[in-house]
């Protein structure tokens, strides 16, 4: 049975977050409601996560990306919110981290989220580091969703374009980690034309459940047709970015009862 209540999305923001408004807009277009919550507030009351069905970690320059992109935000999550977020995912609730949100998921050890012994501390096994050409780059890139991936966010997507805008987006991990990601079908998104030197062209990965998803490209920037760089040349149909969010909203509305 489809639940007609709108799912609630927590948009987690902090000093330097700057893609929160458009991320909220994307979730709202997809049929969810949103509430922006400051990290300080969530750290003070982790239980407030229980009131939400979806979690969005927007892009930006959290804490200036000082030290390294997403590092300080990730450390705060590790110290104060790791159990609460694990619990959120265990409850079957989807999480997306875009750009800086992806960087922090990786650095907090929430992605790729390989199985750990019970109670083990979070462990960072992949990283997002300086682009091969170490400078900030804003451009649209061609992407390919892995049809076999367990990711719930990329279901039904094939080949499409999204913008990237980052200086530290090169996906790096040890070969055995990459192999395990592939084997567990956690690679959800690859670049068709690798813009930053990412290993195995990886643009986005999910955790083994497919619920937690991080990617460097910005789907929230392509939820209207006029955002695409060639929209004045040809009609590309429904904007691909929106699909990520409708997928997640459909997942929570069809699959489970919403948080009361």
């Amino acid at each position: 049975m489809i639940n007609t209540m709108k799912p609630k999305t927590l948009i987690l923001r902090t000093a330097g977050t700057n893609c929160d408004v458009e991320l909220a807009h994307a979730f709202e277009l997809a049929g969810a409601t949103t509430q922006a919550v400051h990290l300080n507030q969530l750290v003070a009351e982790p239980a407030m996560l229980d009131d939400f069905d979806l979690l969005g970690l927007p892009g930006g320059f959290s804490y200036g990306d000082d030290i390294a992109a997403g590092r300080i935000f990730a450390n705060r999550i590790r110290h104060a919110l790791y159990p609460a977020l694990r619990q959120f995912v265990q409850a079957g609730k989807p999480v997306i981290g875009i750009c800086n949100g992806f960087q922090l998921l990786v650095k907090a050890g929430l992605l790729p989220g390989f199985e750990l012994p019970e109670g083990a501390p979070p462990q960072q096994v992949v990283t997002l580091t300086d682009n091969a050409n170490p400078r900030f780059l804003d451009r649209w890139v061609a992407l390919r969703a892995e049809s076999e991936s367990v990711c719930i966010w990329t279901r039904g997507l094939d080949s499409f374009d999204l913008p990237i805008a980052h200086g530290e987006g090169r996906f790096v991990a040890a070969p055995e980690v990459l192999d395990q990601l592939e084997a567990q079908r956690q690679v959800a998104l690859r670049y068709a034309d690798n813009p930053n030197g990412s290993q195995r062209d990886i643009a986005g990965v999910c955790d083994p459940t497919g619920l937690v998803f991080g990617l460097m490209p910005h789907p929230e920037r392509y939820v209207h047709k006029t955002a695409h760089p060639t929209w004045t040349r040809l009609d590309l149909g429904s904007p691909a970015g929106l699909r990520f969010f409708t997928n997640a909203v459909e997942h929570v509305t069809s699959d489970a009862s919403l948080t009361a």
Binding site: D138, R139, V223, T226, P229
Partner: peptide
């Protein structure tokens, strides 16, 4: 141009570089 994030806030309609290959 490409070093600037010219699309943040999601409002971009006509970008500084346009065309078949932007």
């Amino acid at each position: 141009i490409r070093q600037y994030d010219h699309e943040v806030q999601g409002s971009s309609v006509i970008k500084p570089l346009v065309g078949e290959k932007a």
